[in-house]
């Protein structure tokens, strides 16, 4: 059994315990042990980076130090956390000068970044530690007939040089994982473009425009739902649709699912255990199709 330190970040515990729930269930069921670390903080994502790049590196490195001390690799459910921590981890591993600079900051809290651990997105854990084949064998409720639009968002893939999750131009990981559950992964236009999530709060208009395009393209391609791998994208597309309804006076009804929720369903979970009622756009259409 492989053990990981689970890095929750901010959005998930604050807004999406249902995501955490499904991810914990699925991973545990597939033989991954998750350890919760004390004293973690925000991963220092783009909003913090915008204020001070050095601070964001130091904060990310601090959190990695906690994992180093625990002797565990980190797994994240959030692409934002994945990106912040991976970028810091790989930048510092590759740049002695920068590492020393950040370690001078960390010495204030008695930590030293060593670069001895890796940071993974839970999709990587599913592919690398569980394996597609084993995943398929565990599927007790095939999702065949479901047309799912895989949505990668940005920070799971880019900057690719520092993340290495998948090919940033032709990613397959989420598509493969969707198809492993028996569903069909549908192609749609501008699949790899941003959900606009990071503009929320600064320019809701632009953020919604970007999210809207995703919803339209996916429905045009005949998708039953959009599958995300990041709580930020999830909010942008799910909550986003409610806001779109009032802003554009149009009807949007595209269910948004975390991949882990889809996975739990395929592994045979009762939707009630997953607290899916928290979704702003109801996912009953999807449930009807797969149950």
């Amino acid at each position: 059994m492989k053990r990981y330190a689970l890095f929750l970040g901010c959005t998930i515990p604050a807004r999406q315990p249902n995501y955490e729930l499904s991810a914990r269930k699925a991973l545990t069921k597939l033989g991954i042990e998750l350890v919760d670390l004390a004293e973690t903080t925000c991963c220092a994502p783009p909003p913090v980076r915008s204020i001070d790049l050095e601070t964001s590196l130091a904060v990310a490195a601090y959190n990695i130090c906690l994992a180093e001390e625990a002797g565990l690799d980190l797994v994240t459910l959030c692409s934002g956390c994945f990106e912040s921590l991976s970028v810091a981890n790989n930048m510092l591993k590759g740049d002695e000068h920068l590492k020393n600079r950040i370690n001078r900051v960390l010495s204030e809290v008695g930590k030293e970044f060593l670069g001895s651990r890796s940071v993974k997105h839970y999709l990587q854990v599913l592919v690398e530690d569980v394996g597609i084949e084993r995943l398929k064998r565990n599927v007790s409720r095939s999702l065949s007939g479901l047309r799912a639009a895989a949505f990668y968002g940005c920070h799971a893939l880019r900057p690719s040089g520092l993340l290495g999750l998948d090919d940033p131009e032709r990613p397959r990981i989420l598509d493969d994982l969707i198809e492993a559950l028996g569903a069909e992964s549908v192609e749609y236009r501008n699949k790899l473009k941003c959900c606009g999530g990071l503009l929320r709060g600064y320019s809701d208009e632009l953020a919604l425009d970007l999210a809207r395009e995703k919803i339209i393209n996916a429905s045009r391609a005949g998708a039953d739902c959009i599958v995300t791998l990041c709580p930020f994208c999830f909010v942008a597309l799910d909550m986003g649709q409610l806001q779109m309804r009032s802003r554009y006076k149009e009807t949007y009804d595209m269910p948004i699912l975390h991949y882990s929720e889809l996975l739990c369903l395929a592994l045979g979970a009762d939707p009630k255990e997953l607290a899916v009622q928290t979704h702003k756009v109801k996912i009953d259409k999807v449930l009807d199709k797969v149950l």
Partner: peptide, 28 residues
């Protein structure tokens, strides 16, 4: 939300490292 965790069957949240963070933020 924090209270709701137990009804969902989630483990309680571990404390955050506010103190360490404060020191890092003042160092930078």
């Amino acid at each position: 939300v924090e209270k709701k965790r137990s009804t969902l069957g989630l483990p309680p949240l571990k404390p955050t490292g506010v103190e360490a963070l404060t020191r890092i933020l003042s160092a930078t």
